Computed example of a mutant assay.
Amino acid sequence: MIARIWRASATPEGADGYERHFTGAVLPSLRGVAGHRGAYLLRRDADGRVEIEVMTLWDSMDAIRRFAGDDPATAVVEPAARAVLLGYDTTVTHHTVSVSHGDLQ
Results as ranks from 00 to 15, higher is better:
Trp58Lys: 03
Glu19Phe: 03
Asp62Cys: 01
Gln105Asn: 13
Phe22Gln: 05
Thr56Lys: 01
Gly102Met: 10
Gln105Thr: 14
Ile5Ser: 08
Ser9Asn: 14
Leu41Asn: 07
Glu19Pro: 04
Thr90Glu: 11
Arg4Ala: 00
Val77Tyr: 00
His21Ile: 15
Ala39Cys: 10
Val77Asn: 04
Gly38Asp: 05
Asp59His: 07
His95Ala: 10
Arg7Ala: 13
Ile52Val: 12
Gly14Arg: 04
Leu30Met: 10
Ser60Cys: 06
Glu13Ser: 11
Asp89Trp: 01
Ala15Trp: 00
Ser100Glu: 11
Met1Val: 15
Met55Ser: 13
Asp103Lys: 10
Val26Ile: 13
Ala46Ile: 15
Val54Thr: 14
Trp6Pro: 07
Gln105Tyr: 12
Val33Trp: 05
Thr96Gly: 01
Leu104Glu: 06
Ala46Asp: 12
Tyr18Gly: 12
Asp103Asn: 11
Gly35Glu: 03
Ile64Asp: 00
Gly32Asn: 12
Gly48Ile: 14
Gly38Leu: 02
Val99Ser: 09
Gln105Pro: 09
Ala25Glu: 11
Arg31Asp: 09
Glu78Phe: 15
Thr90Gln: 08
Tyr88His: 04
Gly87Phe: 02
Gly69Cys: 08
Arg20Cys: 06
His95Ser: 10
Gly24Trp: 04
Trp6Ala: 02
Asp59Val: 14
Glu78Leu: 13
Arg43Met: 14
Trp6Tyr: 06
Arg66Asp: 11
Ser29Val: 08
Met61Glu: 04
Asp89Met: 02
Val54Lys: 01
Thr93Phe: 07
Ala63Ser: 10
Glu19Trp: 09
Arg4Tyr: 00
Val99Trp: 04
Tyr40Arg: 06
Gly69Ser: 07
Arg66Leu: 15
Ala39Arg: 02
Tyr18Pro: 01
Gly38Ala: 06
Arg7Val: 09
Gly87Ala: 14
His21Trp: 15
His101Asn: 09
His101Met: 07
Glu78Cys: 03
Gly35Leu: 07
Thr11Trp: 03
Gly17Tyr: 00
Leu42Thr: 13
Val33Met: 03
Thr11Gln: 11
Leu57Asn: 02
Arg31Lys: 11
Ala25Ile: 12
Ile64Met: 06
Thr96Glu: 10
Glu13Gly: 05
Thr91Asp: 06
Glu19His: 04
Ile5Val: 15
Leu86Ile: 08
Gly38Glu: 09
Thr91Asn: 05
Ser60Asn: 04
Asp103Cys: 05
Arg37Ala: 12
Asp16Glu: 15
Ala8Val: 04
Val26Pro: 04
Glu19Leu: 11
Arg20Trp: 02
Gly32Ser: 09
Gln105Leu: 15
Glu51Asn: 05
Gly102Ser: 09
Glu53Ala: 14
Tyr18Met: 12
Thr91Cys: 06
Ala81Tyr: 05
Asp59Phe: 10
Ala83Arg: 14
Arg31Pro: 04
Leu27Ile: 12
Asp47Ile: 09
Ile5Asp: 00
Arg44Phe: 06
Gly24Arg: 09
Val77Glu: 00
Ala3Gly: 08
Glu51Val: 08
Glu51His: 11
Gly17Asn: 02
Val26Ser: 06
Arg44Leu: 10
Ser29Gly: 09
His36Arg: 02
Arg4His: 00
Glu13Thr: 13
Asp47Lys: 09
Glu78Gln: 10
Glu51Thr: 10
Ala15Lys: 03
Arg7Tyr: 08
Arg49Phe: 04
Pro12Cys: 12
Ala8Gly: 11
Arg7Pro: 02
Arg66Cys: 05
Gly69Gln: 04
